[in-house]
Nucleic acid binder design. Structure first.
Ligand SMILES: [Mn+2]
Ligand SMILES: [Mn+2]
Ligand SMILES: [Zn+2]
Ligand SMILES: [Zn+2]
Lengths: 133, 133
DNA sequence: GTACTAAGTAATAATTATTATTATTTAACT
DNA sequence: AGTTAAATAATAATAATTATTACTTAGTAC
């Protein structure tokens, strides 16, 4: 159970459950996924509340929003990482590579008139399951 | 004017104009942008046709779809490149770095059970204009 | 603990984005 | 020129997201 980690946030039951759900969920759930998941505990929660809070929590930096193939997804994994995306089935897998992050940030240093804060790389291709077809 | 580059495609006026528009447009237009742009030449084109053709052309590999901050955008720039995204104003700028692409593909070689076909990196941060505020 | 208040929520309406349907038109082939 | 599979326009239908508003609550002050 989450408890007042950040002080400028009002910790409502809805917020706590959403954050809790994301931290336990292994993957990149959509708004709908989060809504369905949280509903098991808070049966009367409104979908608009889920939308608002996901955007709010991302704004506050407690979660990240990642948009893949036109679909908004969320995750509580704040460690810089990359994504492996199957163009066949749409599966999304985290991929940590500090080397790549470092290299990207080094490249970012060359960019003029822009201050890079973070980077991530997407790897597009075919997963094993999709290949066996 | 575009003329039958790929043979398995029926070159309709609508398709030609959409492709032409994207090739002349310097940036990453949304569906709405493309619709408005193309409408200047084909005043009676339907928005559904724009949707269908953008997805179709992306499928055929003549254009690329890039999703940034939950918004679908399209571009005719097929050279592998990266994107610099301002979290302030949302501006999107292309950034070519063959080195980074090569490095990413080298990293991709280590990924198990997945065949990477392409990669791209997003740089998030603050642009010069947004910083001056 | 009780009162106060700004912020959050539920329910719903409204808006925006995207896809499906279908009668008509057309590009490409013969 | 005639044929036909594919594409289009117009529209309806669906899905995704945001706005509105009356009610509720977390956090703070006493
Ligand atoms: Mn992730
Ligand atoms: Mn680009
Ligand atoms: Zn797959
Ligand atoms: Zn900016």
């Amino acid at each position: 159970m989450i408890k007042k980690e950040a002080k400028d946030i009002k910790y409502t039951n809805q917020r706590i459950e959403i954050l809790d759900f994301l931290r336990k969920f292994d993957g990149h759930p959509t708004v709908e996924d989060v809504y369905e998941g949280v509903r098991k505990k808070l049966t009367r929660i409104s979908k608009a509340t889920v939308y608002k809070n996901l955007r709010f929590l991302a704004e506050k930096g407690l979660i990240k929003e990642v948009n893949i193939k036109g679909v908004s997804r969320f995750e509580a994994n704040l460690v810089p990482h990359h994504h492996i995306i199957c163009i066949g089935c749409g599966s999304i897998t985290d991929y940590e590579s500090e080397d790549l992050t470092d290299y990207s940030l080094k490249v970012a240093g060359d960019i003029e008139n822009f201050e890079v804060e973070s980077t991530d790389t997407n790897f597009y291709g075919i997963c094993k399951d999709c290949k066996e077809e």
